[in-house]
Lab assay of single mutants.
Amino acid sequence: GIDPFTGEAIAKFNFNGDTQVEMSFRKGERITLLRQVDENWYEGRIPGTSRQGIFPITYVDVIKRPL
């Protein structure tokens, strides 16, 4: 089901994660935001896939912030 505490964002740019914990994505992908890790990073996942990880806040347009 849908978790009411998650947020939502759209990727503004392609992001290629450097490490296992970073999640790569392509511009235009819809991302579920799980939490804000710190002032620069979100943790999120791509709905319908097993992809999950952290990524820079500046790479996405936030539609709804996670609670």
Rank of each mutant, 00 (worst) to 15 (best):
R26W: 10
I10A: 03
G17M: 04
E8M: 12
I46K: 02
I54M: 09
R35Q: 08
E29Q: 05
I10T: 06
R45D: 02
I2R: 12
F25G: 00
I2L: 13
L34D: 05
F15Y: 13
G1N: 13
L33Y: 03
N14K: 05
M23N: 00
I10L: 08
P47F: 09
F5T: 13
L33V: 10
D61S: 10
K27V: 11
Q20E: 15
F5M: 12
N40D: 12
P47Q: 11
R30K: 11
I54N: 06
Q20M: 12
T49Q: 05
P66V: 05
P56N: 03
D3A: 11
Y59Q: 06
P66C: 07
R65Q: 15
F55M: 02
T58R: 11
G7N: 09
S50K: 12
V21S: 12
Y42G: 04
I2C: 14
G28H: 05
E8N: 07
M23Q: 01
T32F: 08
N16P: 06
N40C: 14
R51N: 04
N16Y: 14
Q36L: 10
F25T: 01
T6R: 10
G17H: 03
I46N: 01
Q52H: 12
G53C: 02
Y59S: 09
K12S: 06
G1I: 13
S24T: 09
P47V: 11
A9L: 05
M23W: 04
Q36M: 10
T32L: 12
N14L: 04
T32W: 09
K12F: 04
Q36Y: 07
K27I: 11
K64R: 12
R45M: 14
V37S: 03
P66A: 04
G1C: 14
I2D: 15
Q20F: 11
F25S: 01
P56L: 06
P66D: 05
R51K: 06
R35I: 06
A11F: 03
T6G: 10
M23D: 01
F15A: 00
G44H: 01
D61F: 13
F55E: 00
R35N: 07
G7Q: 10
G17I: 04
S50N: 15
R26Y: 10
V21H: 14
Y59K: 06
M23L: 15
G53F: 02
L34R: 03
F13N: 09
D61N: 10
L34P: 00
W41T: 10
F25R: 00
G44C: 01
E22R: 06
R51M: 05
T32A: 09
L33D: 05
F25H: 02
S50T: 13
F25E: 00
I31W: 01
E22D: 05
D38Q: 06
D18Q: 15
I57F: 06
F13L: 12
I46Q: 01
Q20C: 12
T32V: 13
K12W: 04
Q20V: 15
D38P: 02
G44P: 01
G48R: 06
P4V: 14
L34Y: 06
G53N: 01
D38E: 07
F13E: 13
F55P: 02
F55C: 01
G44M: 01
R30E: 06
E22L: 08
I57L: 09
D3C: 14
K27W: 05
E29G: 01
P56Q: 03
P47L: 09
Y42W: 15
G28E: 03
Q52W: 10
I54T: 07
G28C: 08
S50W: 08
D61H: 12
I54V: 09
T19S: 14
L67W: 06
E8K: 08
F15N: 02
L33P: 01
L33F: 04
F55I: 08
L33W: 02
G7I: 10
W41R: 07
R65I: 13
E22I: 06
D61W: 14
T49W: 02
K12G: 03
D3K: 11
L33T: 02
T19N: 13
S50G: 12
P66S: 04
G28T: 02
Y42H: 04
V21M: 14
R45H: 11
P56G: 02
V21I: 12
D3M: 12
S50Y: 09
T19Y: 07
G7K: 09
F15M: 02
G7M: 11
N14C: 07
D3E: 14
T32P: 00
R65P: 15
V37E: 03
Q36T: 06
G53T: 01
G17Q: 05
M23T: 01
Q52E: 08
R51Y: 04
L33S: 03
V21Q: 15
R51L: 04
L67G: 15
N40V: 14
L33Q: 03
A11S: 05
D3G: 12
G1R: 04
R45Q: 10
I63K: 06
T19H: 11
T49F: 02
L67I: 15
D3R: 09
I46R: 01
G48H: 08
I57R: 08
F15R: 04
G53M: 01
G48E: 08
D3F: 11
I63S: 06
G48N: 10
A9G: 10
N16K: 12
I57Q: 07
G1F: 09
A11M: 01
P4M: 15
L67Y: 07
W41A: 04
E39L: 09
A9E: 00
P47R: 09
E29I: 02
D38S: 11
Q52P: 01
P4H: 14
A9Q: 02
L34F: 06
P56E: 03
V62Q: 04
M23P: 00
V37Q: 05
T49C: 03
T6A: 14
K64H: 08
K27F: 06
S24H: 05
V60N: 00
D38V: 05
T58L: 12
R26D: 09
D18L: 15
R35L: 07
S50M: 12
A11E: 01
R35E: 04
K64F: 08
I57E: 07
K12R: 11
I2M: 14
G48Q: 07
V62T: 07
T19A: 11
N40W: 13
Y59P: 00
I46C: 03
V62M: 08
W41L: 07
F5N: 13
T58W: 14
N16V: 12
V62Y: 05
L67N: 14
S50H: 11
R26V: 15
A9D: 01
M23Y: 01
N40H: 13
F5L: 12
K64P: 07
F15K: 02
E39V: 09
K27D: 04
L67D: 13
E39F: 08
D18N: 14
D3I: 12
Q52Y: 09
Q20P: 15
A9N: 01
T49D: 05
G17L: 03
R65S: 14
I54Q: 06
I31C: 02
E8F: 12
K12D: 02
F15D: 03
E29D: 07
G48P: 05
D18P: 08
N40K: 11
D61I: 15
A11R: 00
E29T: 05
I2G: 15
G1H: 11
P66G: 05
F55K: 00
R51P: 00
I57M: 10
E8L: 15
Y42C: 07
E29V: 03
A11C: 04
T19W: 06
G28Y: 05
W41V: 05
N14V: 05
V60C: 06
T19D: 12
N40T: 14
Y59V: 07
I46L: 03
L33C: 07
F55G: 00
R35K: 10
I46F: 04
Y42F: 12
T6K: 11
T19E: 10
V60E: 00
N14S: 10
S24A: 07
V62A: 04
D18K: 15
G44F: 02
I54R: 09
L34N: 04
D3T: 12
N16G: 06
L34M: 09
Y59D: 03
Q20H: 12
V21W: 14
T6C: 12
N16I: 15
I57Y: 05
Y59N: 04
R35V: 07
G28A: 03
I2T: 14
G53R: 00
G28D: 06
E29H: 01
I63F: 07
A11I: 02
P56R: 04
G44Q: 00
K27N: 05
L67H: 15
V60R: 00
Q52K: 10
R65N: 12
Y59A: 11
E22S: 08
Y42V: 06
F25P: 00
I10N: 03
R45W: 11
I54Y: 09
G17F: 02
T19C: 10
P47A: 11
V60T: 04
N16E: 12
E29F: 02
R51G: 01
R51T: 03
V37N: 02
R51H: 04
T58I: 14
R45Y: 14
A9H: 02
M23V: 05
I31T: 02
A11W: 01
K64T: 10
T49V: 03
R26Q: 13
I54H: 06
L33A: 03
W41E: 02
E43R: 04
E8W: 15
Y42S: 03
Q20D: 15
V21P: 10
T49M: 03
N14M: 05
F13C: 14
R65L: 15
Q36C: 08
K12E: 03
I63R: 06
G1K: 07
F25K: 01
K64I: 08
F5W: 15
T32I: 14
T19F: 08
R30S: 08
G7P: 07
G44V: 01
L34E: 04
E39H: 10
E43V: 08
Y42I: 06
G7D: 09
Q36W: 08
G44Y: 01
Q36R: 11
